[in-house]
Computed example of a mutant assay.
Amino acid sequence: MDINIKRDGLTLRGRLERPDTESKCPAVIIFHGFTGDLGYERDGLFQALADMLTENGIAVVRFDFNGHGKSDGSFTDMNVLNEIEDAIAILEYVRKLDFVTEIYVIGHSQGGVVAGMLAGYYPDVIHKLVLLAPAATLKDDAQKGVCMDAVYDTQHIPDTVCVGGEHVVGGHYFRIAKLLPIYEVTGNYQGPALVIHGIHDAVVDASAAVRYHECLENCRLELMEGIDHGLQGDEYAQMVKAVVNFLCTE
């Protein structure tokens, strides 16, 4: 079902899917990446995960971050810190659901950065963490003055930067990104974690996943030859199965 929550005057729009039972169950929150959405396509990754997880007795909550998809806000106003604010609001929503027994979090790309830091801030609330191609290199890129095809002066960051020829990113995004304590905060989480990354990811270097593995105390790292940054490729089914098994059986 469609669900809405308020965060600082913005409406964040999402979707809740439950197993075919009235019994209490765990719930997983899925966070999408930069320019993405909660996954409206029936054949998309997030819907595939939702279908498999609900079949295995886990509820799934997905939201569009501010400035993305159907949620309120301007993309230009988005940054990692206010996506963390979104994530906290979503987490608080899930905590209040009377049927939820445990809370898990999945994050892809920039959503992985948000998910990891959220787990670091709420290590007593989040029971399992999954990071898919987590884009912690966004900090390194901001320090270099690059974002995909865009280049800018890190000492005089402009008010806006056009990325990919169509996405106008606020300069504050990069000012924040270059100083984010990504691994420091994420490392405060000590629960079970799974990090999956494509070895040949052309967008986010797999070294980011290795660093997550080093900073997370109870983490399994899977580096895959056959998936790209969008998690598509020859090992797509294996990747999905690894996530579902981790959340359902481990």
Rank of each mutant, 00 (worst) to 15 (best):
L38C: 05
V244C: 03
G33D: 07
M1N: 14
H127C: 09
G111N: 02
V80Q: 01
D141E: 13
A193S: 15
V114E: 00
G233T: 08
E41W: 06
N82F: 09
A208H: 00
G44D: 15
P158Y: 03
G145H: 05
T21S: 15
N4D: 12
A119T: 03
I3F: 08
K70G: 12
G14C: 04
V240M: 13
E217M: 09
I29P: 08
E235L: 11
G171K: 02
N56Y: 10
L81T: 04
I196Y: 05
I58D: 13
C215T: 15
S74L: 14
H172M: 10
T11S: 12
G164C: 07
V163R: 01
F63G: 00
G187H: 06
I90Q: 13
K6V: 12
G112H: 02
H229N: 04
R13A: 08
Q238A: 14
P134Y: 03
T11E: 14
A206W: 14
F46C: 02
L216T: 05
A48S: 12
G226R: 04
V94Y: 05
G44W: 03
G112R: 00
F31Y: 15
K24N: 14
A242N: 12
T101C: 05
H197R: 03
V60E: 04
I182K: 03
G9P: 08
F46I: 03
D51V: 01
V203C: 04
H156K: 12
L138F: 10
P123I: 08
V185L: 10
P123T: 08
Q190T: 14
G44A: 09
P19H: 11
R7D: 13
G198A: 06
F46H: 01
D141C: 08
Y236L: 07
V185M: 07
A209T: 10
G145E: 06
Q110H: 05
C162T: 15
D72M: 07
V113G: 01
T186A: 15
C25I: 06
F63R: 00
G69E: 06
I84F: 11
L216P: 07
F75R: 00
A48C: 11
I182P: 00
D159C: 06
G44R: 00
A136D: 05
I103W: 01
A115H: 04
S74V: 07
N4Y: 13
T35I: 15
Q110P: 09
I126D: 05
E222S: 11
Y93E: 09
L194H: 05
H213F: 14
L180T: 07
G69R: 03
E41P: 01
I3R: 10
R220L: 13
H213D: 12
V243L: 09
G171I: 02
V146K: 05
G198N: 06
F31G: 02
P181W: 03
A206E: 14
G36K: 06
D72E: 12
G191S: 02
C215N: 10
I88C: 04
